[in-house]
Simulated assay, not measured.
Amino acid sequence: MDGNGGALDGAVVAVAGAAGPAGRAALLRLAEAGATVAAADADPGRLAEAVDAARYAHGGATVTGDTVDLLDPAATREWAERVEKDFGHVDGLVHLVGGWRGSASFAQTDLADWDLLEKLLIRTAQNTSLAFHGGLGRSPRGRYVLVSAAGAGKPTAGNAAYAAAKAAAEAWTLALADDFRKAGGEAGPRAAAAILVVKALVHDAMRAERPKAKFAGFTDVHDLAEAIAGVWERPAREVNGHRLWLTEKP
């Protein structure tokens, strides 16, 4: 799909956590699909590189970048309002803020890891969903997309904090989906909140660092970006409140 009348052609999609490998891939794919992309990240240097790469790859695409502290609800809401004001509407928020901490065993879990992951994985999802809720509800194709991990449903001993944070972010997103469902009434939801589930993500730099690793079950960031774009290609009722698996279910 290249913006010629596709599901994302003319859409305005915000991407939170846009400066990492998954964010870069998402910016490229969304811009290719004809969307206007509003990127945000806490790292201005990496964000500028990601935005420039998407603009360069797709000449004529509108890709903007804002340095936003997504742990600050007021700053996040200002970003959401600015996106809708500048472009007239907002049709999506893709949540790619990530992070990982783990331990050798359950007993060795450091609750400082939870303190960090609660902020990165849960609080940023709360702030973005609340900030963009109104705009997505006003859109005829609003989508909120969260990326989660298979471990949220089958946690391992050393991943207690990470799995619990991912599970909480999923529950929050499903509550948003229920709100969209109720707002749609008998006609069905206009907007949708969906969860893309991966085992873990892999990108070219990881493969270069570990050329002999197989990364079994991992999802390439470009395949993730394709799945993100695909959420707009399906009716809201088919994706709202659903976990869309990109890896084998545990």
Rank of each mutant, 00 (worst) to 15 (best):
D178K: 15
K182D: 10
A191M: 08
G184E: 05
A183R: 15
A168I: 09
G184H: 09
W172L: 15
K199L: 13
A171E: 11
T173M: 00
L201T: 02
I195F: 04
R190I: 10
A175N: 14
A192N: 04
V202T: 14
D204R: 13
E186I: 08
A194P: 05
L196M: 08
P189D: 09
L201Y: 06
D204I: 06
D204S: 11
G188Q: 07
E170D: 15
K182I: 12
A191F: 01
A193I: 12
A175M: 10
A171I: 10
I195K: 02
R181L: 09
D204Q: 14
I195P: 00
A168P: 01
P189C: 05
F180E: 07
A177Y: 01
R181P: 01
A171K: 12
P189H: 04
V197E: 06
A169T: 11
V198S: 01
A169V: 09
H203P: 00
L174W: 07
G188D: 04
L196G: 00
P189S: 08
A168T: 15
R181N: 11
L201W: 09
A191R: 10
A187H: 12
A168Y: 01
A169N: 07
W172T: 11
R181K: 12
A193P: 02
G185L: 06
A194W: 03
G185R: 09
A168W: 04
D178I: 05
A191P: 00
T173L: 01
A193H: 03
K199Y: 09
D204Y: 05
A169I: 11
L196W: 07
K182T: 12
A194K: 10
T173H: 02
A183I: 07
P189Q: 08
D204A: 13
H203A: 05
K182W: 09
A194R: 12
E186Y: 01
V202C: 02
G188H: 06
V197T: 15
D204V: 03
T173G: 00
H203G: 00
G185Q: 05
V198G: 00
A169M: 08
W172I: 11
A194S: 15
A175C: 11
I195V: 15
V198F: 02
D204L: 06
A168N: 07
A177G: 09
W172K: 05
L201S: 01
E170T: 08
V197N: 05
K182L: 13
A175V: 13
V202M: 04
A192W: 02
P189M: 08
A187L: 11
L196I: 09
G188N: 04
A193K: 07
A192I: 06
A192G: 06
A169E: 09
